[in-house]
Design a binder for these strands. Structure first.
Lengths: 228, 228
DNA sequence: CGCTAATTTGACGTGAATCAAACGGTGTGG
DNA sequence: CCACACCGTTTGATTCACGTCAAATTAGCG
C-alpha cells in the first residue's frame, strides 16, 4: 500500500523526519505500508534480515526465546520506533505486534542506500539507537533486584505514560496492551505473581479494574512511590 | 598526553577506524590520552556531558545509583567501546574504571564537528550503538528469570571470553576484573549469593580458584550447560 | 606483624515460583 | 436463548531459592 507521509502521525519524530521533504518523498517511493494484527509476527529470529520498519501506530515486542522454550520480552517498540537489523545479516530476535499496528516497511537495500546518500538519516538512526539503548538499560534497572510489587507498579506507570499524550503525566485510564503473560515475560515474573500484585494494588486503593485489561490509576503518586 | 593511532591496539575496531588515515590524524589532533586507575570515575550521572571517549585498554562499568543508594551495573565497556552522550546534555549514568585503563578522550564539540564532516564516523558510531544495544539485551536475558547458578556461570564464561584473544573460546585461566560486589550488582544478586555459587561451582569441579580473583575453568562445556 | 577490607560460610526468614483449582468472559452449537 | 467448552485470569496452598543477619576466614598492604 502507498505511504502518505503528509498525514503520518509520527512524521516529525521518526528517523525519516531528519530528511528534507523531497528526500523523504524519494525514500517513501520505495516503502510500503504494512498493517498487522495483534499477535502477528514481523520478524523471526534467524531469518535473514531483508527488511526494516518504522512503527507508525500500535505496539511491538522484541522477544527472545530461550533454549528451554520460555519467552523473554527484551523491549517494547512504540510509535516512531525503528526495527530491523542494519548491519547483521540475520534477525536477532522475534518481533511481534501486541496490538493492531501500522508500519512503514523498507527493504534493507533501500535503507543502506539512503544511509549513504543522506548522512542526516544516519544521524537520526544513531539518535534512535541511543534512545533504544537507554530504554533497554531502564528496563534492566526495572527488572533486576526489585520486588514484584515494584516491577508491576513501574510497568503500569510506564504504560500509562506512553498511553498519555504528554509523556510526563500518566494517563489516568488505560487499556493494557499486554496480557498478563506478556507483563510477566517483560518483568521476569510469573503470570500468577503479576496477577497477585495487580490484585494487591487494587486492594490497597492505588488502582481500580474494569475488566482484566482496563485499569484506572487512582493514586498515581502512591504508585510512583511504590515503584521507586 | 599525545595520541599515537599507529600503535593503538584498537585502531581497527574502534569507531575511528572508519576514518581515512588523514581524517583520523585530524581528529587525533584534538584528542587526548587519559590514564585511569581502577576505581576512578570518568563521568558522574548528571554532569553536563562535555566529553566522549573510546576505551583503548582496560574495562569500564556503567553504573546506575538508585534512589535508595544501591548500585546497579548496567553495562561493561570493553576496549574499542565508546562512552559519552552524543545527544543528551547530561550524563545519564556514572562511568567508572574497574581496572587501570587507557582512554582516548574528545570534547563533545570535536565529536559533533567530526560527525558532520565525516558521515562514515556517524555510521561507525551507529554500529557501536547497535552493538551496545545487543549487549544490553543480552545482559537483560542473562539477568532476568535465571537462577543464581546460571547467572554466575554465564558471567564467568562472558568474562573468560572477553579475556581470550578469540572471542568464541573462553580463556582457560582468568583474572576477574570485578569484585564480588561488582558481580553481584551486575547480576542482580547479593555478594553472598555470588560467593556461594562460585564455591559451589568449585565444589562441583567446574572451576578452580587460586585466590579470590583468579579462576581456572576446568570444564567449560559443563559451565556452558550450567549457564543455559 | 598487625590492621583493614574483601570474601567465605552458616543459620534463618521471606517472597516469589510452583502446583492446583476456581472463576470469568467469549464464541459456538444445540 | 441457553448450555457448554475454551482461554485468560484470579485465588489458594505449599515449596524452595535467595536475601538477610551474623560471624569466621582470608587477602592485601603498610
Amino acid at each position: 500500500m502507498m505511504l502518505d507521509c503528509a498525514h503520518c502521525p509520527v512524521r516529525d519524530r521518526a528517523a525519516c523526519s531528519a530528511l528534507e521533504p523531497h528526500e523523504r518523498e524519494a525514500l517513501a517511493e520505495n516503502g510500503r505500508l504494512l498493517l498487522m494484527n495483534g499477535g502477528q509476527t514481523l520478524f523471526r529470529a534467524g531469518d535473514d534480515s531483508t527488511r526494516c520498519a518504522t512503527l507508525i501506530s500500535g505496539l511491538l515486542k522484541v522477544v527472545s526465546i530461550e533454549a528451554d522454550g520460555t519467552e523473554h520480552i527484551l523491549a517494547l517498540i512504540h510509535p516512531a520506533g525503528f526495527v530491523g537489523e542494519l548491519f547483521t545479516p540475520f534477525a536477532e530476535h522475534d518481533v511481534v505486534a501486541l496490538v493492531p499496528s501500522q508500519l512503514c516497511v523498507f527493504g534493507r537495500g533501500e535503507i543502506t542506500r539512503a544511509l549513504h546518500a543522506q548522512p542526516r538519516l544516519t544521524e537520526a538512526l544513531l539518535r534512535r539507537s541511543q534512545a533504544d539503548l537507554h530504554a533497554s538499560r531502564a528496563l534492566l534497572a526495572l527488572s533486576v533486584r526489585r520486588s514484584a510489587r515494584q516491577k508491576v507498579a513501574g510497568l503500569l506507570l510506564a504504560l500509562a505514560r506512553s498511553a498519555s499524550q504528554s509523556p510526563c503525566h500518566p494517563a489516568p485510564l488505560l487499556d493494557l496492551p499486554l496480557s498478563r503473560a506478556d507483563m510477566a515475560s517483560l518483568l521476569g515474573l510469573t503470570i500468577e505473581s503479576v496477577s497477585r500484585q495487580i490484585s494487591a494494588l487494587e486492594r490497597d486503593g492505588l488502582i481500580r479494574r474494569n475488566g482484566p485489561r482496563n485499569v484506572e490509576l487512582c493514586d498515581s503518586a502512591a504508585l510512583e512511590q511504590t515503584a521507586a
